[in-house]
Design a protein around this nucleic acid. Sequence first.
DNA 1: CTGTTAGCGCATTCAT
DNA 2: ATGAATGCGCTAACAG
Lengths: 391, 391
Amino acid sequence: MTVTLADVAARARVSPATVSRVLNGNYPVAASTRERVLRAVDDLDYVLNGPASSLAAATSDLVGILVNDIADPFFGIMAGAAQTEIGGPGDGSGRAGGEKLAVVCNTGGSPERELTYLTLLQRQRAAAVVLTGGAVEDPAHRAAISAKLTKLADAGTRVVLCGRPPLPDGEAFVAALAFDNRGGARRLTEHLLSLGHRRIGYVAGPAERTTTRHRLEGHREAMRAAGLAGDGEGVPSGGESGTADGGSGASGAGAAGGRGRQGGARDEERLTVHGLYDRRSGYDATLELLRREPEVTAVVAANDTVALGACAAIRERGLRIPEDVSVAGFDDLPFSVDAVPALTTVRLPLVEAGARAGRLAMGKETPPPGGIATIAAELMVRGSTAPPRGR
Amino acid sequence: MTVTLADVAARARVSPATVSRVLNGNYPVAASTRERVLRAVDDLDYVLNGPASSLAAATSDLVGILVNDIADPFFGIMAGAAQTEIGGPGDGSGRAGGEKLAVVCNTGGSPERELTYLTLLQRQRAAAVVLTGGAVEDPAHRAAISAKLTKLADAGTRVVLCGRPPLPDGEAFVAALAFDNRGGARRLTEHLLSLGHRRIGYVAGPAERTTTRHRLEGHREAMRAAGLAGDGEGVPSGGESGTADGGSGASGAGAAGGRGRQGGARDEERLTVHGLYDRRSGYDATLELLRREPEVTAVVAANDTVALGACAAIRERGLRIPEDVSVAGFDDLPFSVDAVPALTTVRLPLVEAGARAGRLAMGKETPPPGGIATIAAELMVRGSTAPPRGR
DNA sequence: CTGTTAGCGCATTCAT
DNA sequence: ATGAATGCGCTAACAG
């Protein structure tokens, strides 16, 4: 029923081994025989049996790209770039020669699903795996993922991290491309501070994610450097971790106007609301933020999508952007420039990063020294931020 | 080095066949033995060899989801929904039991790449393939894809079309879920007509795609029903195919004001500009449209992303939305409601469609009668459309 | 319910 | 440069 290598061999009057060699092209074969074989392949409409081939060769041409949310362009853009780099241009014949099968797997941000996908990929003896986006910081999951990646690497799978920080306990990976989330966030908040903002709200992502933490840390670095916050460390998990020095500080960062009040650790918490990385969360969180502190003059969002929700909430409160409240996002997704007003944000070179990750996964590019590279983030100042009212 | 089924069998003191039966769970095994086997699996940290298993069983657990553009949420949302339905909830153990490996493949809208991916999936003996989004109408490619799908189906791969119209020459597919693009587009334009618009520009997608054609046809149906266009048929390819009756018609659709002019086929063409399904194209095409016909009072875009670009172009021309020009999109992607003003558009139930496609691919849902289902599109009227000036 | 036997289709030694 | 032989790791009949 189904045509096999042997059938092709018979029709081309050569041995199966020769057909195999022609197809894999990594062995000298006489031009005339090759031609004969190729014709037989076409005549018979032969398609290589992937599983059989993978079994015999102990490797497959599958490359997995894991993303947190495939509906989010942040991941779509990176994954698309990586896939383009991996899949090769295709020869237009539809015959599919030595191409890798680059596939993207949607974890939905769930560590369990991430682990399941890694196991599935391991089972397929994937040639490479690219993990994109921030990691969950739960120690158990971190350890489980780490162990799994080590096993994958041991089995010959190339592991590449893209937009995910390398984990402390030295996973085995070919390369880790980490975004400078902290630096970008710091510069963004510095921009707002330089405009004269002092009461800046922060709509953060899910508390347990590295991306969330780094961006928040960058923001707070800037705030503290301006004397506008307490000195708690890291991301509080939301409970009562304030260090009780509310509102009494007297450091002199030149708060403008009579109502400028120096922030403390308690303030820092009050001005931070966590949510998911989606529009709806941004909307809800911003409403909450405005309820807690009606006098914020600027809102920094975890990413552009969240910023969009924030804008909607602010407008619904009857406030104007940027006249009453400035808004800033992160990532510089394509739609951000079209927001009204255009969104001030931090640009991450997603295409470049994804493509580079793809090349690293294919072994087409030499890894950065130490395997780790930090990718710069660029501040994009646009219309959604302006000096606060009365300044 | 690598642990195999036999190793597990030895440790559990059973035969390899029994281990296989436990792992696949589709055969009666004594509870005690199963437990012993499972422990051995855990002890040895055994991972099934996918290729070997697929080879022996002549099927794999791979399910491919093809999308035109993974960076476009339109596809991301559908693919995510399908993947969730296919991948199963995962059991949290990371052990990966009977799960399918749902993967998405990005064709970038290129028929060659689409074909290549199909071949790759065929090679892997994929359990199912879901094709999302519109098809390219080039006859050669249509035939090639059709032949390939037939072969896939013959080999036991379940083929599902999601958001793609079934092709005329009866491909073998389990089911085809087609969006009512034409009806949705017609109702959208009817909405604009009912507001009093007469000079309506259309920023279309790539000319050779089914989605583009159907939406454009719906638009023109409405225009013609209002006596506002010629009677050419189908999508003109852009050349001089006008039927020369420009501006002389006298059908009485009550054009408002003195400057309403009845359109002819030539007008129909002049008011249509083709581009890609992205923001940049929408921007460029709208600029071109405004150049050709400065007096348009409404612009209908091929989709929401394009509409965003259109808005930017219109504003750059110093025109207000919707006071000077109304704008409408298609798809109702999440960001559309946050546009300013909120975008009037046509809602497609992407999540439902994707999930249904996923279930169909898994054989978890019975196909619609005849294998074909049309999915309704719902008009969403929002702030970006209003009566034209002076009405 | 469990063990035995026999391939699945191909890549790869080793010969020639 | 090509052919012959071997086995990759597993599942699917068949027994029992």
